[in-house]
Each structure stands twice: as structure tokens, then as C-alpha cells.
């Protein structure tokens, strides 16, 4: 999953200090792998360079430098494109998908649509694998089946999440 776009998405609700961003990220997505400060600052400087964020203000004082970042119009577009583009279905996609759903909810975008799009993309790949399976030999079949079972699990997760969007929205406070 892309930390940069996720941080960008977090900025959509308003300008924040780097420290705030890290805390927010850890709270929502970090769970077992909190971000390092360095990671946040290097990502932010990359985004700054690409014109997706701008510096909203600097607070001077003791301790580390405290810049406040704000998202630019280009940044908003970038987040939108990311959210509306299906991920390439692959195993262990959940963390990215989860991030997308939460962000969509936080930014008031169509989370259900996002899930539908992802589901359709998963199914498209499953169709492809199924076609390959029916015309292939046993080895092909076994390989395809492995992928198909994982994709099926993903789709189940997508469907389950779709049916729990309301509760998730309340819990993330969107």
C-alpha cells in the first residue's frame, strides 16, 4: 500500500503537523507497524517536491521543526484517482483495500462503489483464471485454483465489508 497517498488522504480533512499525521496514521492503519518519524518526513518532502502538498505554516520553538502541511488540488486529484482505481488483485491485499475504504469514508467518497469496482476487478481476473483453467491441463488447473481460492476469499471480505460500511463509518468517525 502506498503510505504517501494514505498520508495525502489524511490531509484532505485539513492541514496537519507531521507529528499529527504519524499519530493519525498509527491510530487508523499502523496497528502492529507504527511509522517512523523519518518515514513521515521523507514522504512529505517527496509529496512537497511533486506539488501534491504545500507547507501551510511553521511553528518554531524547542524540539524538532514543526511544519504544517496542507493538500493541494493536485493532491486531491491524486487521492481520487487512487481510490477509484482497482488494485491489481493479489494475495494479502487487505491492508491496502482497508486503507482505501477508511479513507473513502473519511473523505466522504463512495466507499460502496469502491468495493463494487474492486469486486468487479477481482471477478474479471477470476473469469480469466477460470477460462484458463477449463482449457488447461491439471497443473494449470491446480495453479489457477490456488489463485481462485484466494481471490474468492478477497471477494468474501469485500462483500462482508460492503455490508458493514455503516458501522465502519461510525467507528472511524467519518
Amino acid at each position: 500500500m502506498s503510505i504517501g497517498t494514505t498520508l495525502l488522504g489524511l490531509l484532505e480533512s485539513g492541514p496537519r503537523h507531521g507529528y499529527d499525521l504519524k499519530r493519525l496514521f498509527d491510530e487508523r492503519f499502523g496497528h502492529d507497524r507504527p511509522l517512523h518519524y523519518g518515514q513521515v518526513y521523507s514522504t512529505m518532502s517527496r509529496l512537497l517536491r511533486n506539488g501534491l502538498v504545500e507547507v501551510d505554516g511553521v511553528e518554531s520553538g524547542s524540539g524538532p521543526e514543526r511544519k504544517r502541511y496542507a493538500i493541494t488540488d493536485a493532491g486531491v486529484t491524486d487521492v481520487s484517482r487512487w481510490l477509484s482505481t482497482a488494485e491489481k488483485p493479489e494475495p494479502y491485499l487487505q491492508s491496502t483495500l482497508y486503507a482505501k475504504v477508511v479513507l473513502a469514508l473519511l473523505t466522504g467518497r463512495d466507499a460502496a462503489g469502491l468495493l463494487d469496482v474492486q469486486r468487479a476487478e477481482h471477478l474479471r481476473l477470476m473469469r480469466e483464471l477460470t477460462r484458463r483453467k477449463t482449457s488447461g491441463d491439471l497443473a494449470d488447473q491446480l495453479v489457477c485454483d490456488h489463485a481462485l481460492f484466494h481471490l474468492e476469499a478477497d471477494i468474501r471480505w469485500l462483500e462482508l465489508t460492503a455490508s458493514r460500511l455503516g458501522r465502519l463509518a461510525r467507528e472511524v468517525g467519518a
Binding site: 482497482a86 469486486r119 468487479a120 477470476m126 473469469r127 483464471l129 481462485l148
Partner: peptide, 30 residues
């Protein structure tokens, strides 16, 4: 069952009494 649905050419989803053509949607966005 999605594994059964994978034998289709196209998929629609029925939700709240309406039919959503998700295949067409992704085709329109990519």
C-alpha cells in the same frame, strides 16, 4: 458463489431491488 459467477461473461449485482452492472462500471473507469 463467485467461483460459479466466474464462469460468466459479465456480472450484475442486485441490490435494494435494483440491478447494478459492475462490469460496465469498471470498463468505464479503466
Amino acid at each position: 458463489d463467485v467461483r460459479v459467477a466466474a464462469y460468466s461473461d459479465r456480472e450484475v449485482v442486485v441490490r435494494d431491488g435494483q440491478v447494478l452492472d459492475t462490469t460496465a462500471r469498471i470498463a468505464g473507469t479503466t
